[in-house]
Design a protein around this nucleic acid. Sequence first.
DNA 1: ATTGAAATTTCGTCTCGTCTAAATTGGAAG
DNA 2: CTTCCAATTTAGACGAGACGAAATTTCAAT
Lengths: 225, 225
Amino acid sequence: MTLEVSSAVQDYAKAIYSLEQRREGAAVSTNALAERLGVSAASASSMVKRLDGLGLVEHAPYKGVVLTQRGAKVALEVIRHHRLLERFLAEELGVPWDRVHDEAEVLEHVLSEELEELIAAKLGHPTIDPHGDPIPTADLEIVEPVTVAMEVLEVGARGLFVRVSDTDPEMLRYLGARGIAPGETFEIVEKQPFGGPLFARFGDEDAVHPLGGRLAAAMRVEVGA
Amino acid sequence: MTLEVSSAVQDYAKAIYSLEQRREGAAVSTNALAERLGVSAASASSMVKRLDGLGLVEHAPYKGVVLTQRGAKVALEVIRHHRLLERFLAEELGVPWDRVHDEAEVLEHVLSEELEELIAAKLGHPTIDPHGDPIPTADLEIVEPVTVAMEVLEVGARGLFVRVSDTDPEMLRYLGARGIAPGETFEIVEKQPFGGPLFARFGDEDAVHPLGGRLAAAMRVEVGA
DNA sequence: ATTGAAATTTCGTCTCGTCTAAATTGGAAG
DNA sequence: CTTCCAATTTAGACGAGACGAAATTTCAAT
């Protein structure tokens, strides 16, 4: 068995963590993991065995995988690095928000703990990244806010646009070009039937933006207020 | 033959470049390379073959290795990353100068060209790093200033402390604790015989500092007023 | 209960970068 | 001109991480 928590191991831990979130804590299938990471099912399967050997996951063969305490710690450490870096790149270096994800994806694995701390301090210990994703604290606590997809809302709903997936640059550029970012309040002014687009006003702007398809699914909001 | 310029390949190119500098352009021996990188001679030998296959070096078996144009470009790109990062870490994040080297050593391999440019711009396109080493320009030109080791100087010599190796944190902490950094003028006030230490005054301070052994060898200076 | 498709794992192989041990070469000293 | 030593290269192996193909398991549908 191996002893090192390599970049690859970190990526697997992060992916499992993220898939566990989505599936409400249920075991993560090898296939889902493979797809998420863009590797073959065979690769994911053998890597899962390694993670098990490292004590980072519980693996019930053919039944999926669940992070252990230690595995979650590895994942949250990398996620903290990733989101702090995204925030840092956006805020201190002016990297456009549709590109911070890819940059952070490689930097996250080589960020030392000292540098992590210096960056966090410089930013004033932020709690969310540019896409609205929460940043785990230094002792790896994280609060996932309860949100719903924008697409489920009905006309008249008001709320706060909270977060959006950081993985699709296209989508982020689209939102960015229209000045729509997490932190804005909104109101649904119209909704087309049969899963059609909805139309929303953001902040105190007059403009009404059509939101449909994958976009309305990716945008997470807090309702009420 | 392989096609990728991996981190390892970059490290070898960088090491060869640095050893070529030291040996005034002469071919670099496999042994010197191995020692520099902390790997076995066998590893260096096989890697040299790969670099040759990649067109990054000319390898005359048993005679040593010389960087090609392409190889030098790879080396200078990494050196630019390294030194820009050192400067950035020191200036923007307050990393102590004896630690910037190790941080930069890993970050240099994952820095994108966009980020490199943003960092350079933010720093105002600096030409030297915190240890006084010149930073290659964006089109990879570099000017190595002509310097001599401080240890060869005689009493009465005046000049400018220009650079010091970034690889020995101990040494850097020692100098830092005494407020001695590249950019300071100095004057030699005393020199002990038989390769003994010399004594120098820096800047407009009154304090006289003894400098001997590896320290006086590592400090590079420009002489003459 | 049986069967068949889908998910998963196993098997054998590949590249990268390292190692040790063994073979080879070059050059200096006699 | 030989001999011998140090430097170098070759040979063989390994671990990490990936792959495709083949075997296995699960599970839903009959």
